[in-house]
């Protein structure tokens, strides 16, 4: 009799923890699955379909490809860095066709490689309009509470943003890792377009 009532809280804790575990594991699974589905949608985008939804109830469509040839990484980029988009892939903060392109991604799914990047490493961005190649030039760690990203419509560069530190225990920390890459082929790519923050 005493044993019976004692079992209930354990069962509750057990079930809650199991549900939480499933929910947490669903995040990386979703991240991978969405990429696979969007890869198919992307081929439809490239065939000229304007609103190629990767799944019927999606509020988003693939907008481009992020490729790191040296690492064999290939990811579909989404338009608009909303929380939902970031769950599916790296997302462009202010438009994927901007010359000052800013991509953000989750540090524990798509962008977990970000702190392993080496200066000079090549990054390729493909959109429906262009194919651009960049080389990593700069790493910054900034506090998002007192810094913002300057979006400079005249700068030709790629900025990758994720949370820092990449292996922090809890989500929602204020620090960000910002990786800047400058175009490879540009004639004056050494005219310093360093990333700064207001």
């Amino acid at each position: 009799m005493t044993g019976k009532w004692r079992r209930w809280p354990f069962a509750a804790v057990f079930i809650t923890a199991a549900l939480l575990l499933i929910e947490a594991l669903w995040i990386p699974v979703k991240a991978e699955m969405a990429q696979a589905l969007m890869e198919r949608a992307w081929s439809r985008v490239m065939r000229g379909e304007s609103e190629a939804r990767p799944w019927p109830w999606a509020d988003t469509a693939p907008a481009g490809i992020l490729e790191l040839p040296e690492r064999g990484i290939r990811q579909i980029i989404l338009e608009g860095a909303s929380g939902r988009n970031l769950a599916f892939g790296p997302a462009a903060l202010n438009g994927v066709h901007q010359s000052d392109l800013v991509l953000s991604g989750h540090r524990d799914t798509h962008f977990r490689f970000l702190d392993e990047l080496q200066p000079g490493e090549r990054i390729r961005i493909q959109t429906t309009q262009s194919l651009r190649e960049f080389a990593v030039t700069q790493f910054d760690i900034v506090d998002s509470r007192n810094r913002e990203l300057v979006l400079d419509p005249s700068a030709d560069r790629l900025t990758l943003v994720t949370c820092y530190p990449l292996d922090a225990a809890a989500a929602g920390g204020p620090m960000r890792l910002v990786v800047t890459a400058l175009p490879l082929a540009a004639p004056d790519s050494d005219s310093r377009i360093a990333r700064h923050y207001p």
Binding site: I27, A91, N94, S104, E148, L149, A171, G172, P198
Partner: peptide
Amino acid sequence: ASAGFPATATGWVAQ
């Protein structure tokens, strides 16, 4: 223009 940083961690590993 400037933009704030979106939240870029899911915290699934910790969870």
